[in-house]
């Protein structure tokens, strides 16, 4: 697949703070790219640079293989930007907001009206279209914030943490909505988040960003494969386990935690059918064993020595 967007060595400083320290990435047409990183990693800065709200100090952005001209109408129409903060005229009704934003994108008349109905259905707010946005719940505002950004049917949708601070229901609604646009309409979606569950669930490809740098990229499987341990075994710290602690540590790396041991099996025991008989023979009951698959959290921890969320 061709790249719809390429960033080449983007750098941005805010005075002393280096927000981006040379970010390069390629985004395939029709892909769902996740940018995962903790607070202050530089996600919003990166989005603002892609959309042209701020200029990078260094680096280049290619849109369909040619340098992007940000203020040109063509380019503006291609992008839909869902800002991290809700940006709506809250005192006006949903429909007035959409009329204004649609009008500014050059939509009018029947086309505008039918497009308004479409996006209102999509975000599940058709029934509330006449209400002032300020009367919406937090989750509804978030959904409507997206609606206003996709009204003009952009090809590339940038979502900057669109699910911050909302209930699971609204969050699922947003996921469904984005996945529909991705799968059914073939939109390219760039999605930043600091929730690894979201990134795991939604994205084809992931960029892990920390401190203004991309520290890893790939599909979920590729990233997990970066880990020495793809899984860990939790063993409850009851008297039997404690008494065979020495034997357990010979099976791999053993970490002693408050309530259980965490065992990362060594290479000769990397398959569970090799490990389980061993544990059984040490007299550890199956009930006291829990297997956990490695997650992006582990990947992040492994790469940075820190957790994604504090």
């Amino acid at each position: 697949m061709e790249n719809i967007l390429s960033l080449k060595n983007i750098k941005k400083n805010y005075g002393e703070i280096a927000a981006l320290k040379g970010v390069s990435l390629d985004i395939e047409r029709g892909s769902f790219l996740g940018i995962l990183g903790p607070n202050g990693a530089g996600k919003t800065t990166l989005m603002n640079i892609i959309i042209g709200l701020i200029a990078p100090d260094e680096g280049e952005i290619l849109l369909e293989n040619s340098p992007v001209i940000h203020r040109s109408n063509d380019v503006i129409q291609k992008f839909g930007y869902v800002p991290q903060e809700i940006a709506l005229y809250e005192e006006l009704s949903a429909i007035k907001n959409l009329e204004i934003f649609g009008g500014l994108y050059g939509l009018k008349g029947k086309a505008l009206r039918s497009r308004i109905s479409e996006v209102l259905e999509l975000v599940g707010l058709y029934e509330r279209k006449k209400d002032a946005v300020k009367t919406f719940s937090g989750g509804m505002k978030r959904r409507f914030n997206i609606a206003c950004s996709i009204l003009h049917s952009p090809e590339i949708i940038l979502c900057d943490e669109p699910t911050v601070g909302i209930d699971p229901q609204s969050r699922n609604a947003i996921f469904d909505m984005l996945q529909r646009m991705h799968k059914a309409e073939g939109k390219t979606i760039i999605y930043t988040t600091h929730y690894m569950e979201e990134a795991e669930r939604l994205c084809d490809k992931l960029e892990i960003i920390d401190n203004g740098k991309i520290i890893a990229e790939g599909t979920l499987a590729e990233l997990i494969n970066l880990l020495a341990k793809k899984q860990s075994i939790k063993i409850l710290k009851e008297s039997r386990a404690i008494s065979v602690k020495k034997e357990l540590s010979s099976l791999g790396t053993l970490n002693e935690l408050e309530f259980h041991f965490e065992l990362i099996p060594g290479t000769e025991y990397s398959k569970l059918h090799q490990l389980f008989p061993k544990l059984e023979s040490l007299g550890i009951s199956e009930d006291n064993i829990e297997i956990s698959r490695a997650t992006l959290e582990d990947v992040f921890l492994n790469l940075t020595g820190r957790r994604l969320r504090d």
Partner: peptide, 14 residues
């Protein structure tokens, strides 16, 4: 403050 200015600037508005 309410972010709409930023939104306008991502639109065909100078």
């Amino acid at each position: 403050q309410q972010g709409t200015l930023k939104r306008l600037l991502t639109m065909p508005v100078s």
